[in-house]
Nucleic acid binder design. Structure first.
Lengths: 271, 271
DNA sequence: TTGCTCCTCACGTCACGTGAGGTGGC
DNA sequence: TTGCTCCTCACGTCACGTGAGGTGGC
């Protein structure tokens, strides 16, 4: 009992604030070794200091409290390391995103970005293999990567050939509501058999205002902005999903700077 | 009027959600060009798209909304760039912090960190030049840097010589309440004249449990934990500010890995 | 006229911090 | 006994998201 620490002592020992320690108790992340049932005083043991330090490190890495709890509750070191590695991966991709955002911000502010060319194009109805799923803007990119991979693999397995570049359909609600049902498709020269998430379907014909976006996908909003401006200025707006064609995409190369994406915005039929 | 966009169109054009746009209106960050007084409908102009894109980029860099508003309200490009550079600096130091935390976490989990040696030491009352300020754990390090610089410069200017390593006094409340009045001191061989934040004072004598912390300051909590454990286990605890001596510190080298800090925890007089 | 889009309002989320008002331990 | 430390409870912060209930525009 002489080695029990009241909350203030434990705060000094761990550099976690008293408020934080109470919060961790409330949510069950770090329970005091003993709580006086009368006074409510929390008592911590010395051997809880290392646990508190580990929690503190995870928080410095912005790991959510429930994930920290999950890590601490995982006794198997391999499974535990997997959870940690996952988080470090997430951190790293966030870091990459930050780097991209810095570069993109510099471009925007410097006004050095190339002006965006808008053209018009008619696409016919096209038989294709498709994957359809509920996505959010954050999950969209990795979902796209996986779905494109699955489509290519399925066509290959069924002896079919791609009859054009892969593409995607994104209904408005994805942008206004931050989630909705997106479609990726890969046109093919014969009917695909349903397998996994892959289904046969026909991508509808469309009249599109288009622009070509070069490089990584994270700053396509400039292309979208340019199309929106064009379509509005010329009073061409019409309902329908936004469309992307992956001329060079994640299924061809991991080198994002080499990607070429055609963005299409639905418009009135030109003639 | 034909070029006005309702909120959903503007969301599609900018990839900001409708909820987000309403929020930005509420807080005054991005006001619609027009609001119908009857229906409350928000109308945006095409030339607001670039502004929205800039805001989006800043948000991807986690800049707080009020700072973004400040940047947008700053017409002078130089002042504007200063605000942005400031934020990028903050980002960078956070990045460094993250890297440190990853390394430190690995050490903790691997258990490869060297065991921490605790000793006892008696320090006499010492005349010194001091700077005292309200600090929080986050601001502590940069405050320390500045105050140490000011102390060295002031002694030099007054023809005085440091009579020992610089140090700091940190009362309990800084750790339990996340803020409090800290003191940095630099012992000197004569009475310093008050100048700037610098005052003469006497650093009180103390009996200390001590340990030597090598390297950057961010993982001193391991040293604190070890001292807390030692002091508790041997029932030596006594009230008083925690103490640090910067044997090699930020005023000598910017290379954090070279820093040597003695951490002192007040204890009962040994004899 | 239908139904889609827009509106407001109140509340939720996450990880705490703030502060009031009060009790307990040495 | 004093005063410091502890307690709970309710509310605030930040940047939105959720969802109910209702109106407006084409």
């Amino acid at each position: 009992m002489r080695t029990a620490l009241v909350i203030g002592d434990f705060a000094r020992a761990t550099h976690l604030s008293v408020k934080t320690l109470r919060h961790y108790h409330r949510v069950g992340l770090l329970e005091p070794a003993e709580v006086d049932p009368h006074s409510g005083y929390r008592y911590y043991r010395l051997d809880q200091i290392p646990t508190a330090q580990v929690i503190k490190r995870f928080r410095e890495l912005d790991m959510p409290l429930d994930r920290i709890a999950a890590v601490l509750a995982t006794p198997d070191p391999a499974a535990r390391n997997r959870l940690i590695a996952e988080h470090l991966d997430r951190l790293e991709s966030e870091l990459a995103r930050t780097r991209d955002a810095v570069r993109s911000l510099r471009d925007l502010l410097a006004g050095t970005a190339a002006p965006i060319q808008v053209g018009h194009r008619s696409v016919p109805a096209t038989p294709a293999a498709v994957v359809r799923d509920e996505v959010t803007p954050e999950t969209a990119l990795s979902w796209l990567r996986g779905a494109l991979g699955e489509l290519s693999a399925t066509l290959l397995a069924q002896g079919l050939t791609a009859a054009g570049p892969a593409g995607g359909l994104f209904p408005d609600v994805i942008f206004t509501e931050q989630r909705g049902e997106a479609t990726v498709f890969l046109p093919c020269d014969g009917p695909v058999q349903p397998l996994g998430r892959v289904r046969p379907d026909v991508v509808p014909a469309a009249e599109l205002a288009t622009t070509l976006h070069l490089g990584a996908h994270h700053d396509v909003d400039r292309a979208y902005g340019a199309l929106a401006e064009h379509v509005t200025r010329h009073a061409l707006a019409v309902d329908g999903p936004l469309r992307e064609y992956y001329l060079v995409g994640p299924h061809e190369t991991a080198e994002e700077s080499a990607w070429r994406t055609e963005i299409g915005w639905p418009i009135f039929r030109a003639r």
